[in-house]
Simulated assay, not measured.
Amino acid sequence: MTASNQARGGATVNVLNRMEAWEAHLILNLRLWCEGPTGQHHARQDYLNALPAPEAERAWAAFQRLTRKILCTAPRPLVRHDVGCNCVGSDECVFVHLVRTASDGHLNDAALIATLLTGPAYAEHIALMAGEVGSTLRHIHDRQAQSFSPANAPNVVRLH
Rank of each mutant, 00 (worst) to 15 (best):
R68A: 13
P77L: 13
H125K: 08
R18W: 03
D142F: 00
G39V: 05
M19E: 05
R138P: 03
V15W: 00
H139L: 10
A127E: 05
A50H: 10
R100G: 02
R76W: 10
R65I: 04
V13C: 14
A43T: 04
A127L: 05
Q144G: 04
C85D: 15
T118Q: 02
M1I: 07
R158L: 13
G89V: 12
G105E: 00
H106A: 09
T118Y: 08
E23N: 05
V156W: 03
W22T: 09
S149G: 01
G10F: 04
G105Y: 05
F63T: 12
S149E: 02
T101P: 05
A61L: 06
R31P: 06
W22E: 05
H160A: 05
W60A: 11
A153Y: 01
L112M: 12
G134Q: 10
W60E: 09
R100I: 10
N17C: 12
R76F: 13
D104K: 07
L112E: 09
H81L: 06
D91I: 03
T2S: 14
F95N: 02
Y47D: 03
N49C: 10
C72E: 14
R44H: 07
N14R: 15
N17R: 15
R58Y: 03
R76S: 14
G10K: 02
Q146T: 06
L107P: 02
S90A: 14
L159W: 06
Q6R: 15
N14E: 14
S103F: 09
L26M: 05
I140Y: 07
N5T: 15
T118G: 02
W33C: 03
P150D: 03
A7G: 10
E57Y: 00
V79Y: 06
A11C: 03
H141W: 12
R18D: 08
A21L: 00
A110E: 01
S103D: 12
N17W: 07
E132V: 13
D142L: 00
C93V: 08
A102L: 09
S103L: 06
V157I: 13
L32C: 09
H41V: 02
T38V: 11
T73D: 10
L137S: 02
L98P: 05
S103K: 12
P75T: 11
D82E: 14
M129I: 05
G10R: 00
V79N: 04
V15Q: 01
N155K: 10
L112Y: 12
T67Q: 02
P154V: 12
S4A: 14
R58K: 11
H141Q: 09
E57M: 01
P75M: 10
P120R: 15
A123V: 14
I113W: 07
C34G: 09
A11M: 08
L26D: 00
N86H: 11
R8N: 10
L26G: 01
S147E: 04
A74Q: 10
V83M: 14
D142V: 00
V96C: 01
L30N: 04
A61K: 09
D82V: 13
I27A: 01
L51A: 05
Y122A: 15
D104P: 01
L26E: 00
A130E: 04
P52K: 09
P52D: 11
N152S: 07
M129C: 11
